[in-house]
Amino acid sequence: MVPFIACLLLFLLGLYAIVLKRNIIKIIIGFSLMEYAVNLLFAFIGFKQGAIAPIITRLGMTQDFVDPLPQALVLTSIVIGLATTALMLAFAMRIYEKYHTFDITEIRRLRG
């Protein structure tokens, strides 16, 4: 149970950074934290005491494997995280070019 709560805490930490930090880069770091929290949760879900990595190195293996599915899911969500982080950083760079600041309280040209 403890690892799951730790994951949730990490998730909330990331959410805290996104909601309360003013620097765009710190917000992006907050997103990375949230992603890692979910990835870690996936890894914990698949974990099994005493089991080995799910790779077939010879035919007829009989040992217990950890659940390979969450690992595949983590890989996919890492790829998605890569795409979102790259897009966000691109946004951050272009915003810096236009506004000359990373402070979101000063980036307010839209009303409402």
């Binding site: 790829v79 950083l89 691109a90 272009r94």
Partner: peptide, 16 residues
């Protein structure tokens, strides 16, 4: 796809 895409991302970010 991944190799070229990642390199393109690097170029786009580093040399926008």
């Amino acid at each position: 796809k991944v190799g070229a895409g990642l390199f393109a991302i690097f170029l786009a970010l580093g040399a926008s």
